[in-house]
């Protein structure tokens, strides 16, 4: 249970794009063809190691159905990273990205790292959204982009871990104030900065420095 940092992630996107499956693949390394509809939010957690540091990812898998929209908005608060997922076999889920992005930007902190994910890459024959389109969208909005498959596990690890790396880098750069839990980063119980009363960018850098 010991970790240097805890990052809060949130997975968003239309219903049925495979958010819950991505989470399950990442946490349990398995694929469940029929997944229960997510009610409100589900949680997952996994430890990863970056730069020799144990980092706990606390993942909030939100419900994509419209009736939960107002509820899921409150989950953005305090997220350090977001996985914005669409389904490459459903053009409409790609078209809704702008709305999701607006929602995310409006309800989260501005430093939140957003990873755009085109899921179900195993269904190449049914592809409706070209990879280039995803890339273009990501470039345009300053996101990191990746195509994944929750079924074959392709790029799933990478998607979660690369996001964590970005966040970690931001901590190193001092962009994130790790002492402010609203940023979605908690310092592990036995981390030296836990007792530090300093609440500033310096603190973040200090924490980062301590890690190295």
């Amino acid at each position: 249970m010991a970790y240097a940092y805890l990052f809060k992630y949130i997975i968003i996107g239309d219903t049925g794009v495979g958010k819950s499956c991505l989470l399950l693949q990442f946490t349990d390394k398995r694929f469940q063809p029929v997944h229960d509809l997510t009610i409100g939010v589900e949680f997952g957690a996994r430890m990863i190691t970056i730069d020799g540091k144990q980092i706990k990812l606390q993942i909030w898998d939100t419900a994509g159905q419209e009736s939960f929209r107002s509820i899921t908005r409150s989950y953005y608060r305090g997220a350090a990273g977001a996985l914005l997922v669409y389904d490459i076999t459903r053009r409409d889920t790609f078209n809704h990205l702008t709305t999701w992005l607006e929602d995310a930007r409006q309800h989260s902190n501005s430093n939140m790292v957003i990873m755009l994910i085109g899921n179900k890459s195993d269904l190449e024959s049914r592809r409706e959204v070209k990879k280039e389109e995803g890339e273009a969208f990501a470039r345009e909005h300053g996101l990191v982009f990746m195509e994944t498959s929750a079924k074959t596990a392709s790029n799933v690890e990478e998607a979660f871990i690369n996001t964590a790396k970005e966040i970690y880098e931001k901590i190193q750069e001092g962009v994130f104030d790790i002492n402010n839990e609203a940023n979605g980063i908690k310092i592990g119980p036995q981390h030296p900065t836990t007792n530090s009363p300093i609440s500033s960018n310096q603190g973040g850098q200090h924490a980062g420095g301590g890690c190295c």
Binding site: G40, V41, S70, S74, Y75
Partner: peptide, 15 residues
């Protein structure tokens, strides 16, 4: 029930 869930979601900590 949705109202209830929204209310409880304001402060939710899975830990």
């Amino acid at each position: 029930a949705l109202l209830w869930m929204k209310d409880i979601s304001q402060e939710l900590d899975p830990d």
